[in-house]
Simulated assay, not measured.
Amino acid sequence: MAITKTTRTPRKTTTARKSTSRKTTTSTAATQTLATKATKAVKARPKTTAAVATGALAAVAAAGAAYFFTKTETGKKAGKDIKAKASRIKTRAKEGASDLREKAGDVSDKVKDGLSETGQRIKDAATRVRTRDGVAEKSMTEIAEEALTLKETGRKSRKPVDPLIEDQVKAGAIAY
């Protein structure tokens, strides 16, 4: 076996070069300004940011209204006027509600009377129909006596029968 000697070639030394494809940022959380943080928050969560801004605007408006109504003479007068108008509206609403209750009671009474009267009319009409058709109100004993009498005499009771069915019974087409 022969031994061969390998020689190494020296490497070329290169100077470090900067990458142009990536930007390096040197700012950290400590060095970011409030505007930068706010911009990032708006981009990350636009709906949440809008809700927060709306709430802040409402709070500022409420504070301004409170100052106007408590500190300025015009505001104090306006506050008193608003309170008086609210009191008048409340009184009118109470009066309207009591009037409405009275009217509702009157209508309710009329409806109850009408329903009871209609019920009585229906009962009277049903009684007239029963007596007209010969089905007057009979007691159970009267019905039983009539049935026994009809059975003994062999007569059939008078029932309205359809002529077609009567013909079929006579011909024997319908068996009972």
Rank of each mutant, 00 (worst) to 15 (best):
I174C: 01
A44D: 09
E152T: 13
I143D: 02
K94H: 11
K103Y: 13
K151T: 08
I122E: 03
T39W: 11
V107A: 05
T14R: 08
Q168A: 12
T153K: 00
A171D: 04
V107G: 04
A78P: 01
D109G: 10
T24K: 00
A86N: 12
K23R: 08
D167H: 15
K159A: 05
S27L: 10
T25D: 03
T9Y: 04
G75L: 06
A125P: 02
K12Y: 08
A16F: 15
I143Y: 07
T149L: 07
V161D: 09
T48N: 03
Y67A: 05
G75S: 08
E146R: 14
A51Q: 10
K40P: 01
T153I: 07
A86K: 09
D81I: 04
L100G: 05
T26Q: 05
A66L: 11
P10T: 15
E145I: 11
T118Y: 06
Y176K: 04
T141F: 07
P160N: 11
G154D: 06
F68Y: 09
V107Y: 15
A29D: 03
T9W: 07
G119W: 13
K23I: 08
T49I: 08
A78R: 07
V129A: 15
R121P: 03
G64T: 05
S116G: 08
L148V: 10
K110Y: 11
R128V: 11
A126V: 14
K151R: 13
K83S: 07
T28N: 02
A56V: 06
S27A: 08
S98N: 12
V161Q: 13
T25M: 05
D81K: 03
A136K: 07
K94W: 12
K110G: 04
A61W: 10
A104N: 15
D109E: 14
R132W: 15
V161A: 06
T131P: 03
P163I: 12
R101G: 02
L100T: 11
I122P: 01
I89H: 02
L150G: 03
A56P: 00
T15H: 11
